[in-house]
């Protein structure tokens, strides 16, 4: 096992910088944006009702699994997977290290002087390791959410499209774009190959690596879009189920 590395980082005085732009805006909106999502999703996951309406199923409660003896919300059986995937994601790590750990708060802005172990500490060193496991599990969930999105076209046996159908479809498309940009996936499909023309299936892996690379470039954006599309998808179905809004049928 590797020993923990320690560096002494930071400068006397937090936020020391000669930057003249509003450097605190980016970590601030990341902190607020993540907090709003966490607050809403925690409530929506624990409340345990209004998660389905007509052919629609909230992504917080899919796949739906609830043994009769389980006293709490069914979402707990599934939500740990996307939660773990996003907590260990390379982009989200950047976002929360900056926004919450202030390590660093922004580029060329000082953090307080402290002992720093980066991602070598007892806990954080496992993030890159577990990320790939959560990726494998998330792909299974994603397949299930595609099934849900296709089911959303099925209105009691007849084909139809409602606003909710489009909401669910958009959500699963954004989630797919987010998952395809995963750095662990990129490494898995071809990032770890040293010589494509020497490796077995080299051409296919080169193609896959190039394909995933395109999504890796937009990973930060997809992280935010898909985060909020999940919440808004749940909110839409919840409001329909509560009778607060009416789901419009397009077809």
């Amino acid at each position: 096992m590797k020993t923990t590395l320690v560096a002494h980082v930071g400068a006397p005085g937090f936020g020391r910088t000669e930057r003249r732009d509003v450097w605190w805006l980016e970590p601030l909106w990341a902190a607020v944006g993540l907090a709003i999502f966490v607050a809403y999703s925690t409530w929506a996951a624990l409340v345990g009702n209004n998660f389905a309406f007509g052919p629609y199923q909230s992504p917080f409660y899919s796949p739906y699994f609830k043994p009769p003896w389980w006293p709490l919300s069914a979402s707990i059986f599934v939500l740990w997977i996307p939660l773990g995937f996003r907590l260990s994601c390379y982009y989200y790590r950047k976002a929360y290290y900056r926004a919450y750990f202030l390590s660093p708060p922004a580029c060329a802005v000082s953090e307080p002087k402290h002992e720093y172990t980066g991602e070598t500490g007892v806990l954080l060193r496992w993030l890159p390791v577990v990320h790939r496991w959560f990726l494998y599990l998330s792909i299974l969930i994603l397949i299930w959410l595609w099934v849900d999105a296709i089911r959303a076209f099925d209105f009691d046996g007849s084909f139809g499209i409602g606003v909710g159908t489009l909401v669910m479809l958009l959500n699963v498309v954004l989630l797919t774009a987010f998952t395809l940009g995963c750095h662990a996936l990129r490494s898995l499909v071809g990032g770890n190959v040293r010589c494509f023309s020497c490796a077995p299936l080299g051409n296919a892996r080169y193609g896959a690596w190039r394909f995933v690379t395109r999504f890796t470039g937009m990973h930060p954006w997809m992280a935010w879009f898909s985060l909020y599309s999940v919440a808004l998808c749940d909110l839409y179905i919840r409001l329909c189920a509560m009778g607060a809004i009416t789901d419009l049928r397009i077809v």
């Binding site: 560096a7 580029c107 980066g118």
Partner: peptide
């Protein structure tokens, strides 16, 4: 890199890429 290179200290906050 994992040993004396200390790559584990990097917390991928991407300032290097930005500059």
């Amino acid at each position: 890199l994992r040993g004396e290179g200390g790559i584990g200290l990097c917390n991928i906050t991407k300032c290097c890429t930005e500059v």
